[in-house]
């Protein structure tokens, strides 16, 4: 129903076919440029034409995204993109709907819509640009800013514990959860392709650098020299191995992930935690979402992709089921069950 096939014979699209005529107005050096390019490349590869795609956003730097896409686009109001996208997807299942949002947009002002989107499992691809700061309002702490962070609105350091976006999504029953890094073209391509193919809400947290107000927030993960040792590339069905020398791994001791050295103390790859992205039970996936540097390498890639009922499909299936047995008759509807006639 919502798996979109190209209308005619597959056309080979190029990334620039998804690029609008509008000038991109993000700050030079912003991570959003990489994300835009990565998404456009993924869409070109996917082969769904631009006119069958709608991009919806809220407010913030990330939410300018629709203006730069050659698809149908809607720039909404702060935090409300999930609701706008839901209404659109329900009435137009023929369109593939992408949503761009940020950590302030979705985890603060739009928190309610964000969790209900996952609960309903609407067929929408969600790209959350997480730069751990409010950029467009010029530098206040966000719901993902680390405790104690000094910003314009927290000159003595924040006193708020941050959300982990992936944990929140899993807690809200998300059927698809992934994470990638703005500058990692390869990792992003894989994740976006998987999100595009998923039927249901596909959530991708993109670790994005705001070079103006929070420069280097993800440098410990994004920098090439750090990536191998500080991140864990998730692969379904594979043991969790990381490190430049591929000599470190994660072992699950009870419900406690533990970093181990392969070869030391008799540890082999067979002892490692094997990633199961299709585990219906989100418990272990949630454990993964808690792993943070420096205690752990930070998991990147596909956390979870499970199949469960999709809201827009169910809404439309209910209507279609009734329509198979009942013909619409407006006059009869207006008449109701009891009428009388005055001569």
């Amino acid at each position: 129903m919502s798996t979109l096939a190209p209308e005619t014979a597959p056309i080979a699209y190029k990334a620039k076919d998804f690029s609008s005529d509008q000038d991109v107005r993000w700050c030079p050096g912003c991570g959003d440029y990489s994300i835009l390019a990565n998404v456009q490349r993924a869409l070109a590869k996917q082969g769904v034409p631009p006119h069958q795609i709608a991009t919806v956003a809220g407010i913030g730097c990330s939410s300018r995204f629709p203006y730069y896409m050659a698809t149908y686009g809607f720039h909404g109001i702060h935090g409300r993109a999930p609701a706008i996208a839901t209404g659109l997807k329900v009435v137009r299942p023929d369109l593939q709907v992408w949503m761009a949002t940020g950590d302030g947009d979705s985890l603060s002002i739009g928190g309610n819509h964000f969790i209900h989107l996952f609960r309903r499992n609407v067929d929408i691809k969600v790209l959350l640009f997480n730069n751990r700061i409010y950029g467009l309002t010029k530098g206040q702490y966000s719901p993902t800013s680390e405790l104690g962070k000094k910003t314009k609105s927290s000159p003595f350091g924040t006193v708020e514990t941050p959300f982990r976006a992936v944990s929140l999504a899993i807690g809200a029953e998300a059927s698809f959860v992934a994470r990638c890094i703005d500058v990692d073209a390869k990792g992003s391509a894989d994740v976006f392709a998987a999100a595009a193919a998923h039927v249901g809400t596909a959530f991708v947290e993109i670790l994005q650098n705001c070079n103006i107000f929070n420069d280097g927030a993800w440098e410990h993960l994004a920098a090439k020299e750090n990536r191998s040792d500080h991140t864990l590339m998730l692969e379904h069905g594979k043991p969790m191995v990381f490190g430049a020398a591929r000599d470190k791994g994660i072992k699950l001791v009870g419900l406690r992930p533990t970093v181990v050295k392969i070869g030391a103390d008799g540890v082999t790859e067979a002892d490692l935690w094997v990633h199961d992205a299709h585990d219906e039970d989100p418990t272990r996936t949630f454990l993964l979402s808690r792993m943070e540097w420096p205690e752990f390498p930070v998991p990147i890639g596909l956390f979870r992709a499970v199949t469960r009922p999709v809201y827009d499909q169910l809404v439309n299936a209910q209507v279609e089921a009734v329509q198979r047995t009942k013909k619409p008759d407006l006059q009869r509807l207006l008449d109701g069950s009891k009428t009388w006639t005055v001569a």
């Binding site: 709608a54 409300r80 839901t86 997807k89 329900v90 819509h113």
Partner: peptide, 18 residues
């Protein structure tokens, strides 16, 4: 909808969807 704001915003999305 999950709240009043979602109700109106989803309607705006549906209106965008013609």
């Amino acid at each position: 909808a999950e709240d009043e704001i979602a109700a109106v915003c989803s309607a705006i999305g549906a209106s965008f969807g013609n």
